[in-house]
Amino acid sequence: MAVLAALELRGLTRRYGERLALADVTLSVAAGQTLAVLGPNGAGKTTLLRLLATLLRPHGGEVSVLGHALPDEGWAVRGRIGLLGHEPLLYRELSARENLAVYAALHGLDGEARAEELLAAVAMERRADEPLRTLSRGMVQRVAVCRALLHDPELLLLDEPRANLDPAASELVEPLIGRASGRTRVIVSHDPAGVLAEADLVLGLVRGRVQVLAGAAELDPAALVELYR
């Protein structure tokens, strides 16, 4: 079987009012590979992630996610994407189990067994019946990992996924969202050193424009320094 691109962007453009939030982004990520997106604040990293998640529409260019063109075929890729961002996308008044039950229904899954399996994997099964507002941020983030993986997505979109996690929790989620998970991943990060180790491809954005696009192996470290100047 030929390696098909999981992500294919050609001239992707998105405006924010009259300003360009993303200008002419062209790249391709093969299935199972990891793309690291780096850049200073306001570079368009989160915009790119939300576009790939079908939450924003592209204003120009072509976007193909898992073989489907966005935005027209958004319905076909929703449910195959897992988004894990700054917001946990969970209801604070509901417990972890209740939140996951809502998401299972939204995805048309009978997800109870899957939810228990994931909660156990992030060591949250003991506190899974408490309302999330009583849990620490790190614990909520672990539940959010379960939420993003509940429907076993092929593509993971991660926005600083380990931001609120202590080292122990980071280790817990590693098999789920790390390289070993075998999923195609897009990781937005502010920590170039950390993310380079797990990336195949590195995209450096500055003011919505592609400044660096290279394989992680052949990347010139000086280019990264330049990125944050």
Partner: peptide
């Protein structure tokens, strides 16, 4: 309010429902 503040909107939009 709960959906707008706690991200329920996005969570819903990410699903095929």
């Amino acid at each position: 309010v709960a959906d707008a503040e706690q991200g329920g909107f996005d969570g819903f939009l990410l699903s095929p429902a």
